[in-house]
Amino acid sequence: MQDWALPTIHPQECTGCGLCVQYCPTAAVELVDGKPVIVRPADCAYCGLCEENCPTGAIELAYEIGFGAA
């Protein structure tokens, strides 16, 4: 298990609209040359707001499924 998993960005599907930057609550993502880059990976909370607000599905968060304690 990698504790530093980050959202996957698909540049070819990205229109560079910047909504992910606007919605990121920790400012972990910025547009670099018109495309989003997670410039502060340690700040990414993996909250999924970038994925939820991306109009083209260019950002994805992947999850493993397991059992855990409450």
Binding site: A5, A62, E64, I65, F67, G68, A70
Partner: peptide, 11 residues
């Protein structure tokens, strides 16, 4: 519970 990149079944 969502625990970063994991979906954990609690119940």
């Amino acid at each position: 519970r969502l625990d970063r990149q994991r979906i954990l079944i609690l119940d």
